[in-house]
Design a protein around this nucleic acid. Structure first.
Length: 494
RNA sequence: GGCCCCAUCGUCUAGUGGUCCAGGACACCACCCUCUCAAGGUGGAGACACGGGUUCGAGUCCCGUUGGGGCUACCA
């Protein structure tokens, strides 16, 4: 085979969810691992469900994930246009061909009549299928309908004998009896093609060699093969990848919370982690590797190694992977990605540079190992930028309120010791604190825990001396004084 | 209902007839490390849906049952 060509063909009716992203990823991986071409095609033939911003948003999300396409609506290419709404003439011509060959015919049944027929069949316990009545219309009857101004749909004549065999790269041969199919619609009465028809016409026109899509389309494939045959097109290879299900095993939809890739992005998940996680959903390198670079995945990916069974996505594993990337990606990269989250929390006002950037970087370095997302990162770092926090309630009970008199004494000694430190580093401040601890004959925890609470309002976080060094002498003294005063008010209440 | 697909720990998976009293990862539990929380390290609990075959031998092949999913639209 010459050049391998694949396509990702989303319908712009909403944002890209992780199922779609995974399908796009597998297409992309297949193309990249074979030196092939990736086409992005917008399936916007449903004029009612079409959402203008969705197309742009899907493109943005794919690009954010790093899944660049070679041909598409914005990029152009030799087989454009890549928006189905701009290709209607092509579908009409193809449809006309089928009518001329007697393989398709106009149907004047209205939606209401069709619905009634389906209802009738259901009541009789029969399979709801179109009975082909309009195919048997006489020329006079047809003209009469036409004269009455009824805009017909076009239906493909489906043979009622024999079967269609789908040769699937992942599932092997799957056969369907033609008798289970009916004369389905290929052109709607509004002149637009239906999904199955447009899909076939375009995949052929765009020279797609491998149709890689979700399993929900496996049942559509026999219809599409019938169209390929009617049109005299050569069949592509098919590969139906397993579905991704919501935790309750149902099909993914908006009501399942964050399944839109954009939402993960807003929560501070990194594209590297999402792509890595998605690659592992339905595919595995065949060994124990979990965290893999894109290059590694491209090198080892193959459709043959793709699973057959549907997978339920588990945010917790994604979250774990995200934490891994948060820690292992270069610090500068994480800082750059984190900036919008710090801005959103009002911790910084504009893109930091110089000293501010240096400070931000130091802070992120201190907290990144204990958070899972960029949003958590900003949250965990707030007290490095604001000192108007309140003290954690449990912490107050444990470290401030138990023996307020003693704590005030201890904290004051610590404060004074810090005030005397000249070189305010992790090492020097710790030395000073250890000395206080020794002199007072107390446990380290008796000084360290109240200090952490005083400086951050929290009972958990980076090592205390890291916090101290990052905050600097003045800020530490200020916060310790504030805490000492606060504890004195506690004393009064007893 | 009809047609199609699928079935290994809670979840993602390795496993292509013997090396599997089933391996890894997330999550969970314990311990270690430790100024807290993480991270990291060590260990633990946890699965071949069920029933028939085939075979000397089955998680691996076949059939059935059950369960789950998809399609069955002038949606894609």
């Amino acid at each position: 085979m010459s050049q391998i060509r694949v396509r990702f063909a989303p319908s712009p009716t909403g944002s890209l969810h992780i199922g779609g992203a995974r399908t796009a990823l597998f297409n992309w991986l297949f193309a990249r691992s074979h030196g092939g071409v990736m086409v992005l095609r917008l399936e916007d033939t449903d004029t009612e469900r079409f959402i203008a911003e969705a197309a742009e948003q899907i493109g943005r999300t794919l690009a954010w994930l790093g899944l660049e396409w070679d041909e598409g609506p914005d990029k152009g290419g030799p087989y454009g246009p890549y928006r189905q709404s701009e290709r209607v003439e092509i579908y009409r011509a193809a449809a006309q061909q089928l009518v001329d060959k007697g393989l398709a015919y106009p149907c004047y049944c209205t939606k209401e009549e069709l619905a009634a027929m389906r209802e009738e069949a259901r009541r009789k316990g029969q399979a709801p299928r179109y009975d082909g009545r309009c195919c048997r219309l006489s020329e006079e009857e047809r003209q009469a309908k036409e004269a009455a101004g009824i805009k017909p749909t076009l239906r493909l004549k489906v043979p009622q004998e024999g079967q269609v065999v789908v040769r699937d790269l992942i599932r092997g041969e799957v056969s369907f009896d033609n008798a289970t199919l009916d004369d389905f619609i290929i052109m709607k009465s509004n002149g637009m093609p239906t999904y199955n028809f447009a899909c076939v016409v375009d995949d052929a026109a765009m020279r797609i060699t491998h149709v890689i899509r979700a399993e929900e389309h496996l049942s559509n494939t026999p219809k599409q093969i019938l169209i390929y045959e009617a049109l005299g097109y050569e069949l592509p290879y098919f590969a139906h990848v397993p579905m991704i299900l919501a935790p309750d095993r149902s099909k993914l939809s908006k009501r399942h919370g964050a399944t839109a890739v954009e939402e993960f992005s807003e929560q501070g998940y990194l594209p590297e982690a999402i792509v890595n996680y998605l690659a592992l959903l339905g595919w595995s390198p065949g060994d124990d590797r979990e965290k893999m670079t894109l290059d590694e995945i491209v090198r080892d990916f193959s459709l043959e190694a793709v699973n057959k069974s549907a997978a339920i996505y588990d945010v917790r594993k994604l979250t774990w992977l995200n934490a891994q990337y948060l820690n292992e990606l270069p610090l500068d990269t994480i800082v750059a990605r984190a900036v919008p989250f710090f801005k959103a929390k009002g911790l910084i006002s504009k893109d930091p540079s110089g000293k501010d950037l240096e400070y931000l970087t130091t802070v992120i370095d201190a907290v990144r190992s204990r958070v899972h997302t960029l949003a958590e990162l900003a949250e965990a770092a707030t007290y490095f930028f604001k000192d108007d926090f309140t003290y954690d309630e449990k912490g107050v009970r444990k470290h401030f309120a138990k023996k307020p008199g003693e704590v005030v004494e201890i904290l004051s000694r610590g404060r004074d010791a810090l005030a005397r430190v000249e070189s305010f580093t992790v090492e020097e401040t710790e030395k000073a604190y250890r000395k206080v601890i020794d002199e007072m004959g107390i446990k380290g925890a008796a000084l360290i825990h109240p200090t952490r609470l005083a400086l951050s309002g929290r009972t958990m976080g980076p090592g205390l001396f890291d916090i101290i060094a990052v905050l600097g002498k003045d800020e530490c003294i200020k916060r310790l004084d504030r805490a000492i005063n606060y504890i004195r008010t506690l004393q009064g209440q007893d």
